[in-house]
Design a protein around this nucleic acid. Structure first.
Lengths: 253, 253
DNA sequence: TCGACATATATGCGTCAAGCAACTAAGTGT
DNA sequence: ACACTTAGTTGCTTGACGCATATATGTCGA
């Protein structure tokens, strides 16, 4: 999974070193955040190139160590704000990666998060050092579900550590969550045509959905309300715009 | 959420203490394992009384600190084997609890796991210091979903730290997972009547299921196969016994 | 030995959600 | 006026699920 040095750094710093108190155990706690959006039928994630060549110069998810005075959740928010300038978005813990040698330098346990944001909010972030890379998402049933990040020519970008695994799990989580949670709205602007929501779902699930069925179920869910407005189009009938509505007036289940 | 001392121990050991290397950051990494089984229509979890009165003498989930030389997953397995004598069971990461003051003594980030096992495998474990406590499981839609552990008289046992939150999340996870994963079999012996599987599902979901529908969907799933055997009963028709079958010969979806 | 009893298993049918296809609606441009 | 494109609707079919009821298979007691 990771190249080169195999022994953890803690071992090389003294095999018989003892720690008087458990809070001195040399395990660093970090967070990695996958900032995901959808555009043109593909999922995209924000990647940064580490300034230091420690990770082999590979592209990486924004991340950082957890400060002892902050909660792990707060660390994820801080990282997202510092490295992407993004606040107040859907941010949820994904999974904790605790393999011994996931970082060849030293022992790091990383709590991975994923955030969802509409594409338009990322404009200011996309600079030289930071990029929004499209993800090559494998078919749902495929073994492993390993996800690659692609550059502008469709080549796979080398990802640091186990960050490809993290992205793979993000996609799995999104697919599972879409079945019962309204996460599609996180990737859309305030007002949107139903077709855009369907495209989001199809992008996440990786398969086409029936227009009538989708429309029927979304409207019946009570999660959307008409904005009494229409989109501006250039050669065809404009679609009605909807907005997300938190209330969920279904009977039960 | 937790009583008494509010300041983390790291602060009291020197407010301006610096750490030369990030691996000396004073955050301890621990695992807590909820060992869950089902019996008589109720979920049960294994609780231990800490030998030291550090946690206020409250009942707690089996847990321990992660050793720098082992993965977090391995630590969970080790804790389960050491404190419950249980190996080779369904064991899955649940969530990582990272609030600053979840343990009033010092900063501990805990990776929670849950394990499923059939009741019969727990026999040797239930001793004076360890107990299998029934869980009072709130109704699905209920706010918070906080779960209590009950003693033999139905009174709520005081639980250490945020362990009640962990148990609440276990129940939520089980309910969600039951929809698409065959976790019911983990709680049953090798051969079982379908009625027992339905009882497991009803216990986890907290609501009755239609017998015909349940039977139909389970048999259609291809996950069970007849064991060509019947249970031994004492006054009525015996049920056919089934066994879990890994293959899943459905077309898709 | 036979019938009451309890639980298992099957049958029939109504309801509802989802899928497929074809149709109508509302814009722009020639 | 008519072609073109996308939006939205209608009708029908299929399949999953729920409820009620009937039949099956064992034990047990009169």
């Amino acid at each position: 999974m990771t190249p080169a040095p195999r022994k953890p750094a803690s071992a090389s710093s003294g095999p018989s070193r003892r720690f008087a108190r458990f809070e001195d155990l040399p395990i660093a706690v970090a967070v990695d955040v996958a900032l995901v959006t959808a555009e043109a039928g593909q999922l995209h994630a924000l990647l940064v190139r580490p300034t230091a060549p420690e990770a082999g110069g590979d592209w990486a998810l924004p991340g950082g160590f957890v400060d002892p005075s902050e909660s792990v959740d707060a660390a994820a928010e801080r990282v997202l704000a510092a490295k992407a300038g993004i606040e107040d978005v859907f941010l949820e813990q994904l999974y904790t990666f605790g393999a011994v040698e996931r970082d060849p330098r030293t022992r790091v346990v990383s709590v991975a998060y994923y955030a969802l944001v509409e594409r338009a909010r990322l404009g200011a972030v996309l600079q030289a050092d930071r990029r929004l890379a499209p993800l090559s998402v494998p078919w749902e049933g495929e073994a492993g579900g390993r996800v690659e990040a692609l550059d502008e020519k469709g080549r796979a970008l080398p990802l640091a550590f186990d960050h490809a695994d993290i992205l793979g799990l993000v996609v799995k989580r999104l697919r599972g969550k879409l079945r019962y949670a309204p996460i599609g709205f996180e990737l859309l602007p305030d007002r949107f045509p139903l077709r855009a929501l369907q495209e989001i779902h199809e992008t996440v699930l990786g398969r086409p959905l029936n227009k009538h069925s989708f429309r029927r179920s979304v409207l019946a869910s009570g999660l959307v309300a008409s904005a009494n407005r229409r989109e501006k189009t250039v050669g065809h009938r404009p679609a009605e715009l909807y907005r997300f509505q938190a209330s969920k007036p279904r009977k039960d289940r």
